[in-house]
C-alpha cells in the first residue's frame, strides 16, 4: 500500500530506508575519506520523521550558523539532499585539502567555499549513486548550491518544498566519525512522498 504521509511508514519500510541510508552514507564516507586522506567511518544510519520545529531542534537549534550544500533530485525521484557542514567539519576539510583553517565562517572566500561545495557535492553524488544502483532508479542531480546562514532556515528549505503535502519532514542520513571523533557533518536526503512510494516499491517492500 502506498503511503499518503511520512508517519504512515511501517517498521519494515523504515528498516529498508535505514539500509538505504547505511549504504548511501557508507559510500559517502569512503568518498570523504579519499578526499581528506583520513579514515572516515559512519555511525548508525538514521531515518527520522520529524515535525518542523522538532527537526530544527534536532539539527542543533535555529540560529546557529552553518554551511550548507544543497542538491535537487530529479528524474525518477524528486527531493533534495543537504550536506550540513559545521565549523569543525569545515576546518577538517580545509586543513586536509588546503592546509589552512578559518576562525569562523567569515573566513570563507571563494576558494574555501569551492572546496566545501565540491566535498558536499561528491558526498551527495556518491550517496545517490549507491541508492540508484541498489534500487535501480534513475536520479538526476542539479548543480550544487551553497549558503552560509542560520541552520533553521537551511532545514526549512526541504520543509517548505513539501509543506503542502505533509506536516513532517523525512530525513535519511547519518553522521560520520573521523579518527574515532565525530565529524560535525550530516548528510540528509528528503524525498517527496510520491518518490518515497516509488523507491519503496522498487526496493520490493511496498505493494502499492
Amino acid at each position: 500500500m502506498s503511503i499518503k504521509d511520512y508517519d504512515e511508514l511501517t517498521a519494515l519500510e523504515l528498516d529498508t530506508l535505514k539500509e538505504v541510508g547505511s549504504i548511501g552514507t557508507g559510500n559517502a564516507a569512503t568518498a570523504l575519506s579519499e578526499l581528506i586522506g583520513r579514515e572516515v567511518r559512519i555511525q548508525s544510519p538514521e531515518v527520522r520523521i520529524m515535525g518542523y520545529n522538532e527537526a530544527i531542534e534536532w539539527i542543533g537549534g535555529p540560529e546557529e550558523i552553518t554551511a550548507g550544500v544543497l542538491v535537487r533530485l530529479g528524474g525518477q525521484m524528486n527531493g533534495v539532499m543537504l550536506s550540513v557542514q559545521k565549523l569543525d567539519f569545515v576546518n577538517l576539510v580545509l586543513e586536509s585539502m588546503m592546509g589552512k583553517k578559518v576562525p569562523d565562517y567569515f573566513g570563507l572566500y571563494e576558494m574555501e567555499s569551492s572546496a566545501l561545495i565540491e566535498v558536499g557535492n561528491i558526498m551527495i553524488s556518491t550517496f545517490i549513486n549507491a541508492l540508484s544502483g541498489l534500487a535501480d532508479v534513475n536520479v538526476e542531480l542539479s548543480v550544487p548550491a551553497f549558503t552560509v546562514d542560520m541552520q533553521g532556515a537551511i532545514m526549512a528549505v526541504p520543509m517548505a518544498l513539501y509543506g503542502g503535502q505533509s506536516d513532517y519532514i523525512l530525513t535519511i542520513g547519518g553522521r560520520f566519525l573521523c579518527n574515532g571523533k565525530e565529524v560535525p557533518c550530516r548528510l540528509l536526503m528528503s524525498p517527496d512522498i510520491r518518490s518515497l512510494n516509488f523507491l519503496l516499491r522498487k526496493l520490493g517492500v511496498s505493494g502499492g
Binding site: 535555529p62 540560529e63 526549512a156 528549505v157 520543509m159 517548505a160
Partner: peptide, 23 residues
Amino acid sequence: IGIADMKMAQTTGTLITYALGSC
C-alpha cells in the same frame, strides 16, 4: 513562535521567531 505557529501578547513582552528563510 515556531514554524507554522502564532502567538499573541498584550501590554508587555517580546515575541520572537527564529531563522526565517523563505518563511
